[in-house]
């Protein structure tokens, strides 16, 4: 098939050219790319989440759903346990995204040291998280300022990092710590870290993901009424979120 020349290459009028050129500046934000890359890192969880959403909305197959991941040890009640576990793995993708941001940030000294040194390692950690909750004694993260590790060995020029990528890296790392806390038997630790996270990133790019974690943390800590309120608020604010189905499914199965 012989292609005709593109309009921009031949024959476009001035007005046509102006319209077509307007398309050239259309690009996704770095945050959107990072989110997708995070999804790649947590792809196991993405699959699990989708299954939970579909199962919860279509069937009453709680026993079947639970048997798919019998090792998840948090949450309160059949499908809710599995859903929380799946969400944890999904959000583990943020760790991978941290690695991605560092890899794509054109500076030798990223501000944040990744939770794990590579996306592949993070991915392995995510899988383990469903069967072996992280130890509770994991040190709480400090947010709002670079850690010594972050600026020490490699920190000769942290300010050369692209601000947007650096901020997002810190935000991703913060959420990764929340996720780790959610994998412990005490979900209140996750709530406490979420409070710190919200204070550190009041206008963060990942507020939506933080809200998802909060809903899960509330249900997992037995605060059903608050969980339902948070879920309703989430759905009102993000009605077309990719996480909306999961939030609805969790809300429909969790105790009030």
């Amino acid at each position: 098939m012989n292609d005709p020349p593109r309009l921009l290459d031949a024959g476009a009028s001035a007005a046509e050219r102006e319209l077509l050129n307007a398309w050239r500046a259309t690009q996704p934000s770095p945050q959107a790319r990072a989110r997708a890359r995070g999804l790649a890192g947590g792809v196991v969880g993405a699959v699990g989440v989708a299954v939970v959403a579909a199962s919860a909305s279509k069937t009453a197959g709680v026993a079947g759903a639970s048997s798919m991941a019998p090792t998840v040890a948090i949450g309160a009640g059949g499908l809710a346990k599995w859903a929380v576990g799946a969400a944890l793995v999904a959000l583990a993708g943020v760790g991978a995204a941290v690695g991605y941001l560092e890899a794509t940030t054109p500076t030798p000294a990223p501000l944040v040291v990744a939770v794990s040194p590579s996306p592949r390692v993070v991915e392995a950690t995510a899988v383990v998280a469903t069967s072996a909750p992280a130890p509770r004694e994991a040190p709480p993260p400090t947010f709002g300022a670079p850690t010594p590790q972050a600026t020490g060995e490699h920190g000769s020029s942290p300010h050369r990092a692209r601000p947007a990528a650096t901020e997002l890296s810190r935000e991703l790392e913060s959420l990764e710590h929340v996720r780790q806390a959610l994998a412990t038997p005490d979900a209140t630790l996750a709530l406490s870290r979420l409070d710190s996270h919200d204070a550190s990133f009041p206008k963060g790019a990942l507020r939506e993901e933080a809200s998802v974690l909060r809903v899960h943390a509330l249900f997992a800590s037995g605060k059903g009424a608050e969980g339902h309120r948070a879920a309703a608020a989430f759905l009102a604010r993000y009605p077309s979120s990719p996480h909306a189905g999961r939030i609805r499914a969790l809300g429909s199965t969790a105790a009030p």
Binding site: A36, L39, A40, S240
Partner: peptide, 18 residues
């Protein structure tokens, strides 16, 4: 307003079926 969520949807589906 919806473009980033839509893109995420596409890649979530792709992850499911890869």
């Amino acid at each position: 307003a919806g473009i980033d969520d839509a893109a995420q949807h596409v890649f979530m589906v792709t992850a499911q079926r890869i």
